[in-house]
Design a binder for these strands. Sequence first.
DNA 1: AAAATAATCTAATCGCCATTAGATTATCGA
DNA 2: TCGATAATCTAATGGCGATTAGATTATTTT
Lengths: 217, 217
Amino acid sequence: MARKPADQSVNREDILLAAAEVLQRKGFEATTMKDIAGAVKLTAASLYHHFRNKDALLLAVLEAGLDHIINQIEPIVHSALSSDEKLRQMICAHVVGVTHNTAVGATMVFEIRSLMDVKPLSETASEADQRAYHDFIARRNRFFAHRDAFEELFRFVIREGIANGCFRQTDVGIFTKTLLGAHNWVGVWYRPNGRLSGEEIAAMMADSFLRALRNEG
Amino acid sequence: MARKPADQSVNREDILLAAAEVLQRKGFEATTMKDIAGAVKLTAASLYHHFRNKDALLLAVLEAGLDHIINQIEPIVHSALSSDEKLRQMICAHVVGVTHNTAVGATMVFEIRSLMDVKPLSETASEADQRAYHDFIARRNRFFAHRDAFEELFRFVIREGIANGCFRQTDVGIFTKTLLGAHNWVGVWYRPNGRLSGEEIAAMMADSFLRALRNEG
DNA sequence: AAAATAATCTAATCGCCATTAGATTATCGA
DNA sequence: TCGATAATCTAATGGCGATTAGATTATTTT
């Protein structure tokens, strides 16, 4: 059967973490396979043992990051808390998540475009390449859908809060975009040794957005 | 003396606008000189008549975008309006600016990193290259300073509003980052034929942020 | 019209980078 | 210990893309 991986060999997850760091620093297009390989002390060729190609590697980084944050936020949505407390916790979880791994956070923000313009398959592609390509596209579309679902979690709670009178009447779509834009941007400017911790920043942001949303009185 | 440019020849500004559009669509690293040249019906080589190299072209795009938005916002800061009215107008001007030219807006957000890792000059560089390089670096640093000054306009008005009791006590730095993150993100999701106009979106966002900031009562 | 300069082109060059081919080495299960 | 498979390596390949060299064409000034 499958052999148990040796302790000193590099595994998929090591590569994903290192790749996120490099991708944040240089951006997808400017990052070479050699850069990523170097970050885990491999040669570029060795990466192809773990990932089909550069696009697949990027997608894997993004998937891992998205899964992680969704797993943190979904339970809050389905809890028995009040809508405003839900939203507060969701904002904190998201912002703290971004500050705890700015690499993945920033990659999620900046490198998604690179997924969009994957070059079409050449005419003369083998059967196997065709299949691999379609698998990739399907997987990518699943990722985008997953990403929309993430945003929908926020919309859901805001809608709920408006319905039960906790929040004022407002345009849910715009408010959600405003919220997520602010969150995403944290990954750009946050510095681990800065004046404030991720938790402090998260609390302040949650405070502001709840003031913006809560009903008067 | 300098010849007056012919009407049918492509000028600097045509190139900047076209370049911003291409850069938004593909990102700096993925954009080739040929792409940009094609957008104004030139060959790649011809671009070098107008710009020293690709980095200089990017910098010129960013400078133009930043100048434009600063020119819109600076007068508001120095007007006689109340702090909250100033902030409302600044938010609207910024967001509308972003929606009116998403190309420049998104480029400002996404491509600045490319300016940061400009490769250092090779050892064997000519006198002229040395000078050109240092000019470029100086110009880039001026751009970054200019960008900080833009952010400072918002901080200034918020501080002022807190001082005169118009706004609640809050962390000015964090609030400003929150605000600008939300604004910048608009360039990512806004679509000209979407449900709402840039002006409508701007008004809603300004409304939310002013609720977040205003003193109670 | 002649000289000067601006704008553009065609045709290299040169290097880098994703990807592949084909070993080689390490680890595990039997 | 043997065979299988995983993990890694070295050494191409093939193409693309920024940049340059050197014409060529267009426009303006005198």
